[in-house]
Write a protein that binds this DNA or RNA. Structure first.
Lengths: 130, 130
DNA sequence: CCCATAGTTCGGATTTTACGAACTATAGAA
DNA sequence: TTCTATAGTTCGTAAAATCCGAACTATGGG
């Protein structure tokens, strides 16, 4: 019992902006996606057990991939014991022109500044000031 | 007691992509922001008590504006009894070129399809199946 | 001072997220 | 076939984020 559910890949017309933004608003997922979008072939999940100097528990990583997949950002395919993941950026570029490029570019602008600049924030999603 | 806290506006270099994406991944906030970005002068909060055929409780609305503000997307200024809100899109365009335009454009692509097309999803952020 | 309007804060219910433990699935070796 | 290792998923629960009504603050005008 407790069988494994089949992978869900929404068709491109069911992909929503809100979904994309939500998924990419997480720094770990954004980093995974950037890596996938920037690399030629497929990448397996366990390549990301360590990312941006942070180690991610594999159950968490699995859920990040599920989120990326179900938002339509990534296609995952089982090959033997591993999962091959590729970004669906060409399709998304068709549906939402410029969106992915602008987001990836913004991320790299931001990390460029962080690398050079002084202050370093661990999780910048909420820039909360006391 | 229980005084009102001052409004927080991060300086532009503290604005993060993750923060922007997170805030705009909510359909209500995205609609508010689109309206603000598209209109000339300032808008007061209560203009949005009803948006996209949905009525928003004012405590919720207040928190949405707080989120927009603290992510750096919106500037709010008290004028008498009301709050004047303007989008900070020029500053953000400087820091993350093309980001806001691509997001707003993607939203309008999506709603254009929704308007014409058949199926209508109430909250498309999670396209969860079965 | 009293009232009306605009927005905020509080508190509790609901929802979402994170992660360790236990599991499934597949390949290869014995 | 059975054993073992590897890759990833599911479950359970604890922690965090979100939603919204009630009560509040702040401002302006009789």
């Amino acid at each position: 019992m407790n069988v494994m559910r089949p992978l869900i890949h929404p068709s491109i017309e069911d992909v929503s902006v809100e979904g994309i933004l939500h998924v990419l608003s997480d720094p770990v997922r954004a980093a995974i996606y950037a890596e996938l979008a920037g690399s030629e072939g497929a990448q397996i999940c366990s390549n990301f057990l360590r990312i941006r100097d942070r180690s991610i528990p594999k159950s968490t990583l699995s859920q990040h991939f599920q989120a990326l997949r179900e938002a339509g950002l990534v296609r995952s395919e089982r090959r033997g014991v591993e999962m091959h993941n590729t970004s669906r950026c060409a399709e998304i570029q068709q549906r939402f022109p410029g969106l992915i490029a602008a987001i990836l570019n913004a991320h790299s602008v931001q990390s460029a500044v962080r690398t050079r600049g002084a202050k370093h924030k661990r999780d910048a999603r909420k820039t909360k000031v006391g």
